[in-house]
Design a protein around this nucleic acid. Sequence first.
DNA 1: GCGGCGTCACTTTGTTTCCT
DNA 2: AGGAAACAAAGTGACGCCGC
Length: 267
Amino acid sequence: MILEHQNGLLLWRKSLLGERIWRDDLSYKLLFSPNGRSVYQFTEQDMELTAGESLLLNPHVIHKQLFHTSEKWIVELSPAFLSDVAREVGITASDPFFAKIVFKHPLIHQWVDTTRLYLQMQTTETEQRFWMENSLIQLALLLLRLVPGAHAENWNIEGYDPSIFVVLDALKQSYEQDWTLDDMVALTSLGKYQFSHHFKKETGLTPYSWLQILRVVKSQRLLQQTDASILTIALEVGFKNAAAYHTVFRRLYGQTPGDFRKRLLKT
DNA sequence: GCGGCGTCACTTTGTTTCCT
DNA sequence: AGGAAACAAAGTGACGCCGC
């Protein structure tokens, strides 16, 4: 099923075919795998989505779907639309720019479930158009607020299981401190291995990579608003040195902190 | 030459998988 | 559920490149 709208496009498909062609879309693109497994190929590496996981691509990220095992969802949001929503509600003044990470969030899953149920109902074209219009605005807000690695000051962590929330909240409060897995486990009533698994199951990310993403996101404001050196910023947000910072930044955003700063100065 | 930035090879630590 | 081992990712220090 494909629904088109001036603000975006929704594709919901159950066929199991992969694709041969490389895509270079103009839009932001949410890839979601409700219950199966999907594998996407990028120029640098492949990425896999398992049940309940999402991946949000910025415009012009070259990719190809290798295969998926069951239902797949693709929602495209036009850059002008997403930027307008972000500006109107004051989430970000510049164009949204998302980290390339596979993540999970219960509210995104809920959005898909609700949309699926609605689309299965007998409705008129006009009703569907209204639904799409509102639904895309809802999704845009969810993405801007909830996707890890999206926006420094407004990254919401509500909605997760309480045992995970307590750790996420502590990390958010003191991301610049030295954290070990044991420190995080101490905040919960779970065992070390149990915590590790539970965290990944809930968020789609490992505890340490979540912390690294948080640090990189926090560093973006410093890159934008100060002229501090890359090393100073790396140390300030909790990295032990610039090399570690460079590596993580590049993995998440496909560019170095220096490139990121130059891009912001241009706009 | 100096300072800042980015990369590389090696070491350490975290994560996942397998097993009991 | 929890431990051991294998594997993956992050941290470290050294070094090259570039602009001043």
